[in-house]
Design a protein around this nucleic acid. Sequence first.
DNA 1: AGGAGATGTTTTAAGCTTAAAGTAATCCGG
DNA 2: CCGGATTACTTTAAGCTTAAAACATCTCCT
Lengths: 171, 171
Amino acid sequence: MDSPSPLERVLDAETKAAENPQDHRDELRLWLRLLTCTTLIEGEIRRRLRERFDVTLPRFDLMAQLDKAPDGLTLSALSKRMMVSNGNVTGLVERLVETGHVARRTSATDRRAQLISLTELGRAEFRTMAAAHEEWVAEMFAGLGRPPREDLMRLLGRTKSSVRAAITADI
Amino acid sequence: MDSPSPLERVLDAETKAAENPQDHRDELRLWLRLLTCTTLIEGEIRRRLRERFDVTLPRFDLMAQLDKAPDGLTLSALSKRMMVSNGNVTGLVERLVETGHVARRTSATDRRAQLISLTELGRAEFRTMAAAHEEWVAEMFAGLGRPPREDLMRLLGRTKSSVRAAITADI
DNA sequence: AGGAGATGTTTTAAGCTTAAAGTAATCCGG
DNA sequence: CCGGATTACTTTAAGCTTAAAACATCTCCT
């Protein structure tokens, strides 16, 4: 355990009474604020996708992955990139096949695997939605100037590393 | 529209080719990184709550709100604070009543409303879980020093304002 | 070749989530 | 005090999500 630096003592004194070593309220507040930001943005994107394009966010996300992979992706690859379970992707693909946005073909080299790719319809619709989506996101971050956005980007990069380290540490 | 400052020109030149005014890839990347951080943390918390306490995150969240409100909360108040729909809360409360973690009583002043509060069991279990939860969160942010955490906190505060402004602007 | 283990996918059961519509009680202006 | 608007809550239908178990195919070792 490090003892607090002089700067930390000052900050402590400024913010509140002496801090005991077990207290992690600041980290908790940070997490709650992070969650609030994400929930707000995600909720608004969901709402607009639904309202203007009658599509759900998970379907949009799946199409986004396929748009970046012109040769198609297997269900496993999709599941890994989307950070969701395999069974989840099975259902999403099923519904997107029904609506004609994606197509499945069995892999030539592995009869277990299926390659999923966007249909022409799927690609065209996705491109339209993606353009609007990009505008929406930019609009929501517009209140932040460019330099703060870059600071935030950097700090979130460090956060991601920190979290991954904590997650993989206890496996 | 502002024309780019000298510093912005330098940054543009450093990062990639000349930027056209419609391009919002940076904001998109920022949003995706924010989402990744939240997804990672939230997924791990979900997993641990399930594994160690056999509880879901929504139930934990609901109990957290009740723990902060000793006199109980109506379903509407819960729904507002948790930022989820009314119907959602109806179901969560129903299941938590079944397991004996919360209790409902009709408001003395408004026969439509019900006040939900933690039972003794619910409060005891919540306190145990909350302590572990706080540790987990601290652990995941531990790779970040205190000053970067404070920077992040501040930037997320500005982000929240920016997003709220964008969301309420088009209502 | 044969079989163990790995990998790709689907199914199942349970729970979460929402929007929209429906029911019940309250509030408030006339 | 009465009727319309609002507020509190529930129900419904649809979709998302997961963990776990089941199934299919492949890989690789001997």
